[in-house]
Design a protein around this nucleic acid. Structure first.
Length: 480
RNA sequence: CGGCGUGUAGCGCAGCCCGGUAGCGCACUACGUUCGGGACGUAGGGGUCGCAGGUUCAAAUCCUGCCACGCCGACCA
């Protein structure tokens, strides 16, 4: 831990791998594709989780927990679903010292087992809407894992709802997409493009998938959350029916929606810089780190006293503050260490500050002198820190929006498209192509159709690939 | 599953061609000096050299097989 990380600007992939390990977010597990989320990384995930959970409850959802083992036959009930998930299933074939009569699937997602239960629970329109969320781990056997972004086992939430009408289901699907949008902007400071997935890219078993797509620091797209309108696909497969108000039987219309530990990767890759992590204050496990500076025991006593007093004042003001009084490292070492760990605000307190009863503030989002302010009265730290944190949160969002907007380019023909993609940017264009066209485009340029943005220009245009008349524009990019 | 790499101390690596006491930097432990942007000195601790065979008086080093991991592709929250 002696050297700085590889600068982000120099080698993005190396930077990511180094930062997540050096900042102690994560460690590799013994099985390929598995990761250990270490306390600092888990604290970040807990903040993400809590902020999402709060919003789910506020929109009327209840948490529940469904089993991790799913009978293999369940997965097979929905044709598209089984086709989509088969290659990445982990199967339990032996247990209790014997071969099982029917293999069990370690859940890759819970639509099937939840619908098996819904079939028992839903009898009447009075049982609807049924609004359930589950926090759980899921397993998808990945061929090419990357910590947080794509791991064999990951943590997530999966919402599962059932409704009496297709309109209600569609409303719910979009409502939860909005919840995600609200979360990423206001908590994670990550701007996104919200839109609808193409048939190629939609969830296996959904009639329609909506997504939030975030732009990472290297220009690649990250699908940061999805919300699916499942139609009646699963309720039909599982025979779930309810009696309507007019006495007829109907299959309920359903939704599912999820955000995973991938979001942690999104936070890292949206805000990080050459020196390491940059965490948005609202999600940062530690919002303010207090670093003391002293030369001798006399200074030490006075500095220490003030450091603890400032720490208490910050905590009283609702700031997640921590004082680092360890004597193993120098102040300079700590400065660099906490910058690497992305702590939004650093407070320096030395003998000169004790004398003036003032402290030094340094903000992580603006490196060096520019982000440093001397002489902040010790009595004001709570108020000023709160203001600074709010300002840092805003600046991070504004910077990310600026970055996103300046890297989405409207293109009109193939040549321009290829150029924009090769340049690491996103291409936006009229699109009337087929799934086959999408695949061809990916083979040629590496870009995939990320989504049809919900915000459309209106009218019609010429498809940049086929020249046919198109009614929608789509956004294309290389993706994680 | 295809292509290319890499496995030696917690991490990063050298040693392998040309077999002969397993090394370097960081980290770790102790003590002292330091301390407003990654300090220094002295003394220490730590290794089945990925695994299994083979060749040899002797293998990290040569030979054979296997395994794992990483990067690039096909698949994905």
């Amino acid at each position: 831990m002696s050297e700085a990380v590889t600068p982000r600007s120099q080698d993005y992939a190396a930077w990511y791998i180094e930062v997540i390990q050096r900042a102690e977010l994560v460690d590799y597990g013994p099985v390929k594709g598995t990761m250990v989320i270490k306390p600092y990384g888990y604290a970040l995930w807990e903040n993400i989780r809590d902020q999402l959970d709060r919003r789910f409850k506020a929109t009327g959802h209840q948490n529940a927990y469904f089993p991790m083992f799913i009978p293999y036959s369940f997965i097979q009930k929905e044709a598209e679903h089984v086709e989509g998930f088969s290659p990445e299933l982990a199967l339990v074939t032996h247990a209790g010292g014997k071969e099982l009569e029917e293999p069990l699937v370690v859940r890759p997602t819970s639509e099937t087992i939840i619908n098996f239960m819904f079939e028992k629970w839903v009898k009447s329109y009075r049982d609807l809407p049924l609004l359930i969320n589950q926090w759980a781990n899921v397993v998808r056997w990945e061929l090419r894992p990357r910590p947080f972004l794509r791991t064999t086992e990951f943590l997530w939430q999966e919402g599962h709802t059932a409704h009496a009408t297709p309109e209600e289901a569609e409303e719910e699907t979009l409502r939860m997409l909005d919840v995600y949008v609200d979360f990423v902007y206001n908590e994670a400071a990550i701007p996104v493009i919200q839109g609808r997935k193409s048939d190629n890219e939609k969830f296996a078993g959904a009639t329609r998938t909506y997504t939030i797509e975030a732009m990472m620091g290297d220009g690649k797209a990250l699908q940061a959350g999805t919300s699916h309108n499942l139609g009646q696909n699963f309720s039909k497969a599982f025979g779930t029916r309810f009696l309507t108000q007019d006495g007829t039987l109907e299959h309920p219309w359903q939704t599912s929606w999820g955000v995973s530990t991938r979001m942690v990767g999104g936070v890292i890759m949206t805000h990080g810089d050459d020196k390491g992590l940059v965490l948005p204050p609202r999600l940062a496990p530690v919002q303010a780190i207090i670093v003391p500076i002293w030369k001798n025991d006399t200074e030490k006593a006075a500095v220490k006293e003030m450091v603890l007093r400032v720490e208490q004042a910050l905590i009283a003001a609702g700031v997640r503050a921590k004082a680092d009084l360890s004597e193993q490292e120098t102040a300079g070492w700590k400065f660099n260490e906490y910058e690497m760990r992305g702590v939004p605000l650093r407070i320096e307190i030395g003998p000169k500050d004790v004398e003036k009863q003032a402290v030094v503030f340094a903000r992580r989002d603006r490196p060096g002198k520019e982000g440093k302010q001397f002489g902040i009265p010790a009595d004001d730290v709570g108020r000023v820190a709160t203001e600074w944190l709010a300002d840092i949160q805003q600046s991070l969002l504004q910077r990310a929006i600026q970055f996103r907007d300046s890297n989405i380019v409207d293109v009109e023909d193939r040549e321009q498209f290829a150029q924009v993609i090769a340049n690491g940017q996103w291409a936006r264009a009229w699109w009337a192509g087929t799934g086959t066209d999408e695949r061809k485009l990916k083979d040629e340029t590496g870009a995939t159709l990320r989504c049809f943005p919900l915000s459309q220009p209106g009218g019609t245009g010429r498809c940049f690939l086929t020249g046919a008349e198109a009614t929608e524009v789509a956004v294309f990019a290389k993706a994680y």
